[in-house]
Simulated assay, not measured.
Amino acid sequence: MTFSVAVAGASGYGGGELLRLLAVHPEFEVRTVTAHSQAGQRLRDVHPHLASYGDLVLEKTEAESLRGHDVVFLALPHGHSGALTEELPEGTLVVDAAADHRLEREADWTDYYPGEWAGSWTYGMPELVLADGGKQRRNLEAARRIAVPGCNVTAVTLALAPLVRAGLIGSEGISTVLAVGPSGAGKKASVGMLASELIGNLVPYNAFGGHRHNPEIRQNLRNASGRDVRLSFTPVLVPASRGILATCTGQLAEGATLERVREAYEEAYGDETFIELLEDGRYPRTSDVAGSNRTQIAFGIDERAGRLIAISALDNLGKGTAGAAVQSANISLGLEETISLPINGVAP
C-alpha cells in the first residue's frame, strides 16, 4: 500500500530534511508541499538539493491543501499547528514537528510559551524508556496524532533517561550544556544567525532556565523515572550548520558503578538500531552522525567530583527532527521502523 503524503512548512530546514528522507521512502508518496511566503515557487528553487521532486510547486499552507492525504507532516513555527489540525479528519495521521502538542501539563506550556495550550499528543520518541519498564514505542502503534520531540530534548533525554530510571543519578542538580548548530533555529532571517555573527564565535542563548525545551526534558525524565527532576539546561550556538553535542552530568547515586551504568544503557538501548553506545575511550562527534538518524552516547564517572557524565551527539535536523517524525510515522502505520532512515552519516 502506498500512503499519500503532504508536508506543510516544506520551505524550511526541517521541512526540507523531511522531504529528503521521504524521497526514498517506498511506502510514501509526497503529493503536496506547502509554504507561507514562498507559496507559488517551485520546491527545487527553494531547496535546490531536492532534485527528485522535479517541478512540484509549493502551495499555500491551508487545511484545504492538506485534506485528502493519508499522512500530513507539519514543519511549522510554534503556535500554528493546533488550529490547522482541527480542520483535518481524525483518521489522518498528523505528525507535528513543532512544540504545540508536546507538553502534557498546561502549566508547563503557559510557563514557557505564548498563546493557549493545544493539548498533548502521543510523543514521538520511540526509544524513550518509561518508569514501568516499557518504552514509548508501544504508545505510537496506531496513533493518529504524534508530537515530534525538540532536537535538544532528544539529545538530553536519550543520554539521561536510562540513568534516572535506574536511580544511578539523583533527581536534583542535573546539569546539561549543549553545543548546537544554528539550523535548529529555523530558516527565518535573524541578525544573530548571520555568518558574520557566528563564524569564530560561541554564543549562549536562552540561558538561566529560559529555554523552552526545559519543561519537555523534565517531562521525559519524569516519565522515565516516575519522579520529578530538576535540571540546568544551557544551549550554546556554534558555527556548524548541523549537529548537537550534549554534555550532561548528575550527582552519582550511592552504590553506582561504571559497570551498573553500562548495564543500564545496554538494557535501555542494546537492541536499538539508531542509538550507538560507544566503547570506553571514544567520544561522540557530530560529524559522525551528520545526515543520519543515529545518536551516539558515551558515558563515564568523574570520581573526584562524584558525578556521572553522559555525552550524546545527533543531527538536529535528522534524529532531532525529521528522522524522529518519519520513524514515528512508520511505527504508527505498522511499517518497518527503519524504512528510509539512514544509519550512516556523511563525511567529510
Rank of each mutant, 00 (worst) to 15 (best):
M1D: 10
V5E: 07
G16L: 07
V24Y: 13
H25Q: 07
P26I: 12
E29L: 10
V30W: 00
V33I: 08
Q41G: 01
R44E: 12
S52V: 13
L56N: 07
A63I: 02
D70E: 04
F73T: 07
F73H: 02
L74S: 03
L74D: 02
L74N: 04
G82M: 11
A83I: 09
E90S: 14
D96F: 03
D100F: 01
R105T: 14
D108F: 05
T110A: 10
Y112E: 00
G115A: 07
E116C: 10
G119W: 07
Y123H: 02
V129L: 06
A131E: 06
G134P: 08
R138L: 13
A142L: 11
P149H: 04
R165V: 00
A166S: 13
L168W: 04
I174E: 00
V177F: 08
S183V: 02
K187F: 15
K188I: 11
A189W: 13
S190C: 14
S190V: 11
G192L: 13
I199D: 08
L202E: 14
V203W: 11
P204L: 02
G209C: 04
R212H: 10
E216G: 07
L221A: 02
N223F: 12
S225N: 07
G226A: 07
R227C: 08
F233P: 03
P239L: 05
T249Y: 09
T257G: 01
E259S: 15
Y265R: 06
Y269N: 00
G270N: 08
D271T: 10
D271V: 11
F274D: 04
E276I: 07
D280M: 10
R282C: 11
D288G: 06
D288T: 10
G291Y: 01
R294H: 09
D302H: 03
D302I: 03
A310G: 04
A310K: 01
L314Y: 03
N316Q: 14
G318L: 02
A324K: 14
A324E: 13
S332L: 06
L341H: 00
G345D: 11
V346S: 14
A347L: 13
A347H: 15
P348I: 15
